[in-house]
Structures are given as C-alpha cells and as structure tokens.
C-alpha cells in the first residue's frame, strides 16, 4: 500500500519538485528580500495563520440555524451558497435558451443581437443594479455570478445544438423520431452534451472569479471573498493570502471533480475523439 503510494509519487516527481521549489523560492524572497510581512507574508506566516484560523469557531446563522462551526467552514458554506445560487440560475436559464436558439433559426435571429449587446458588459458592472433590484442579500451575489456564468452556458449550448450533423437528424427521422421535441431530446441534446459541459466548466470558472467581487459589497458577513476584504482592512495580509489560496484550491477542486465525473461517466463514448 505504502509502496504503491510511493510509486505514484515518484511518477509525479517533476511536478512535485516544481511545487516545492516555488514554495522555497517564495519563503526565501519573503524572508530575505522583502523582509516585510505586510507586503509579502512568507510561506510559514501563511501556514501559521492557516493553523490559527482553523481552530476558530463562529456562529452559522443561516435559515434560522444556530451552530458553532469553524470559521473557515462557515465562510465556505456562504461562498458555495452564493456560487450555487448563481450557477443554478445560469443552468436553468442558459441551457434552455441556448437549446432553443440553436434549434430554431428565427428565434436565434431575434435573441442573438440582444445577447451580443449584453454579453460584453463585465459582470461586475452590474453591481449597482444588483443592489438596487435585489438588495444586500445572498441573492444579489448570486445574481452577479449568474451574469458571469450564463453567457458561456448559452453560447456553448447554442454552438453544440447548431453543429448537430444532418446525418444524425435524418437517421433519427427515418427511424421514426419526427417531432422537434423528440429530435431535441434524443439526438441534439446528447450530441451537444460535450459542448454544453465545456460551457458549464467555463461558466464555473467565470462564476468563481466573480465570487470575490460579489461578496465585496456587503451581502453577508461571511464568505471567502468577503473575508479577503475584511482581513485587508485589518491589515492581516497573511490571512488574505490564506483565503486567496483557499479560493484557488477550491476552484481547482470543483473543476477537477466536474471533469472527472463528465469524462468518466457522461462522455465515455468520446474516448476516441481527439480534443
């Protein structure tokens, strides 16, 4: 067992060396060159700050719940809540809109110019309206993440639906699959699935990036993004870095988990396809 783990590790030796060297370099630069915890906390500073904050508890006051939980966990729960509110809305709206646009040409011509005008507006530019329309609550943070995530989902779903090969549609038709509903359900959707999931991955990335700004304007007293600003005001730059790294690792984890699930389960028929 241990031997096997060691073998896996030695197979990744170059990657490991790369990460270790970066950490050592960081530590040396912070301690001997910058020599200032405010400008650049060292690796050990960040590690101690992380160990320190892990043991701190706070109250989770969500949905009338009243638990004492580690503060990091509470921040994580809030952030994931904001993130999922936005992403679920983006999925529920983006996929059907993209499907309809890709399948019915006239509707595409109606909707496409509107989307092309709204899409280049950066999600963060919506903050004033998010506050005015929704107020300072988690839904407003979710709204910003929704704005960031919905367009990649629409566009990839649309592209996937538009590129459905004629031969599959015709093959389905001669096999007795004739209505638009059936063709979408049994041909276009499975065909477009790789493109849709790629869109969801991009959307999750963009949504995750919007998280910090979405929590910045005070939608709640917790959240990974909110805490970055909170500790910045308190000049706890080591904790700022702890939260930054947490955001990075979580984003990486979410992406990997999704990719593992999609490639392994949903899209195994594409194994032969070179991406």
């Amino acid at each position: 067992m241990v031997k096997k783990d060691f073998q896996i590790l030695s197979g990744k030796s170059i990657e490991l060396i790369s990460i270790c060297s970066a950490i050592i370099l960081w530590q040396l630069v912070a301690v001997y060159i910058v020599q200032n915890k405010f400008y650049l906390p060292s690796f050990t500073d960040v590690t101690f700050a992380f160990v320190g904050i892990i043991s701190k508890d706070t109250k989770l006051g969500l949905f009338g719940l009243d638990y004492q939980l580690p503060v990091l966990l509470v921040d994580l729960i809030y952030s994931l809540m904001h993130f999922w509110i936005g992403l679920i809305f983006a999925l529920v709206i983006g996929i059907p809109v993209g499907m309809i646009m890709g399948w019915f040409r006239t509707i595409n011509r109606v909707v496409d110019p509107l989307i092309e005008i709204i899409r280049p507006i950066p999600p963060l530019a919506w903050i004033p309206f998010a506050i005015v329309w929704i107020g300072l609550n988690p839904i407003a943070a979710g709204f910003l993440i929704f704005i960031g995530a919905v367009f990649p989902i629409i566009i990839n779903t649309f592209t996937g639906f538009k590129s459905v090969s004629r031969v599959y549609v015709e093959a389905a038709k001669v096999l007795g699959c004739n209505t638009d509903r059936e063709l979408i359900r049994y041909v276009a959707l499975p065909y477009a699935l790789p493109s849709i999931t790629a869109g969801i991955r991009i959307a999750m990335g963009v949504g995750w990036m919007c998280l910090v700004a979405a929590e910045m304007f005070g939608v709640s007293r917790n959240g990974l993004g909110y805490k970055i600003w909170h500790h910045y005001y308190l000049h706890n730059m080591d904790l700022v870095l702890v939260y930054m790294l947490l955001l990075g690792f979580l984003g990486l984890f979410i992406d990997r988990a999704l990719r593992y699930y999609i490639d392994g389960k949903l899209l195994k028929w594409r194994k032969g396809v070179v991406i």
Binding site: E170, A172, L175, G176, P190, Y191
Partner: peptide
C-alpha cells in the same frame, strides 16, 4: 419519413 422504410446512409450515421 416513417418506420416502414429503413434507410442506410453513405456516411456513418450511428449515434
């Protein structure tokens, strides 16, 4: 199109 007429295409048309 209807199921009383089967069709095989020149291109590979398996889903």
């Amino acid at each position: 199109p209807g199921p009383d007429r089967g069709m095989v295409f020149q291109e590979y048309s398996l889903f």
